[in-house]
């Protein structure tokens, strides 16, 4: 870590984005395509948080080729100083690329159909959502057409995708909960049995995420799965508790009453206005904890009126 922190400013850190422009027909060595690469590089250079000295592209000043000048001196000149204006400039750039071992096969593909633009981002200035949007606006969208495709990869890009779909994750959660309600209704045939697991899940999520904020942490997008996991466990426990209560209610109510109480534990414990005598019978002997505690007229078997918790369990 010390080495990384010491040298990342000079040699680059871990936050790299690589964009590749690929043509389907022909090569990149045309005026239009080299112009695209040059302007894509310029666009990448203006993305927020980019390290301007660590961009690598044949359209950037940092990628140079060696040229022997008069007097036997060596000069390192950029491959492209501007977007090529004539066919002679295009030919010159192709000749330079094909003769430079630090470019050909590394930044430009061996079949001349693709070129890379690598960029490093400063760790303290990482704003993944903004970087994602700006790369799309300045590097990807303006330069794609039927013959040209732009691919982008890298860790900041990956986080950008996560941020982009964070809103969709919320709607997936809402739809999942609605489907769960329907499934629980089909299982319990009672709105209370369906709603209790949801309430416990929501309360668990509020407490968990509220506590994260309370201790001063932020929610990492890659940790989004954790609240889902905890909520799923809470819902699972609530369903298990409700199922156990249902089973106790049926066994306590006996065969005939149990048939009438099959609808739900709650309906057997507290009869509705339209309840039948058999359901009332099941209510009086029910072991449903909460309803018994609130509304039993005579203490069920095995407990006193002062200890509803004991007698219900």
């Amino acid at each position: 870590m010390k080495i990384h922190n010491k040298y990342s400013g000079t040699f680059g850190g871990a936050n790299n984005i690589v964009a590749m422009m690929e043509v389907k027909e022909g090569t990149i060595f045309t005026k239009e395509n080299l112009g695209r690469i040059f302007h894509m590089t310029e666009g990448m250079d203006t993305v927020y948080g980019v390290n301007h000295n660590q961009i690598e592209s044949i359209g950037h000043r940092t990628v140079r080729h060696l040229r022997v000048a008069a007097g036997g001196t060596l000069r390192a000149e950029p491959v492209m100083l501007r977007a090529p204006q004539t066919q002679e400039e295009v030919d010159s750039i192709r000749r330079i690329v094909h003769n430079a071992e630090n470019i050909y096969g590394l930044i430009v593909s061996l079949d001349d159909k693709a070129a890379l633009i690598r960029a490093n981002f400063i760790e303290g200035r990482l704003d993944y959502k903004r970087i994602f949007d700006e790369v799309n606006a300045k590097v990807v969208e303006p330069f794609q057409d039927a013959n040209t495709t732009v691919f982008v990869a890298g860790e900041p890009r990956l986080y950008g995708w996560v941020y982009r779909y964070a809103g969709d994750v919320f709607w997936i959660l809402v739809v999942t909960y609605c489907i769960e309600w329907v499934l629980r209704w089909m299982y319990f045939h009672d709105w209370r049995g369906s709603l209790r697991p949801t309430l416990t899940g929501v309360i668990a999520a509020f407490w968990g995420m509220g506590f994260i904020h309370l201790i001063g942490l932020a929610l990492d997008p890659l940790m989004l799965v954790m609240p889902f996991l905890i909520t799923a466990r809470a819902v699972s426990h609530a369903i298990r508790c409700t199922t156990a209560t249902t089973r106790n209610s049926r066994s306590a109510a006996g065969t005939s009453a149990g048939r009438s109480s099959r609808r739900s534990p709650s309906s057997s414990c507290r009869p509705s206005r339209a309840s039948s005598p058999t359901r009332s019978a099941s209510w009086s002997s029910s072991s449903c904890r909460w309803s018994c505690c609130r509304s039993s007229r005579s203490p069920p078997r095995g407990g006193s009126s002062r200890s509803p918790f004991r007698r219900c369990c």
């Binding site: 871990a14 936050n15 760790e123 990482l126 993944y128 986080y159 941020y163 964070a166 309360i203 999520a205 509020f206 407490w207 995420m209 509220g210 506590f211 994260i212 904020h213 309370l214 932020a218 929610l219 990492d220 997008p221 890659l222």
Partner: peptide, 21 residues
């Protein structure tokens, strides 16, 4: 429990979605 849940719900909506490398 409802009061505490309300407080935590408020804090939940204050939670930022942030990645710090």
């Amino acid at each position: 429990v409802l009061l505490v849940t309300g407080l935590f719900a408020y804090w939940t909506f204050q939670l930022q979605l942030v990645t710090s490398f």
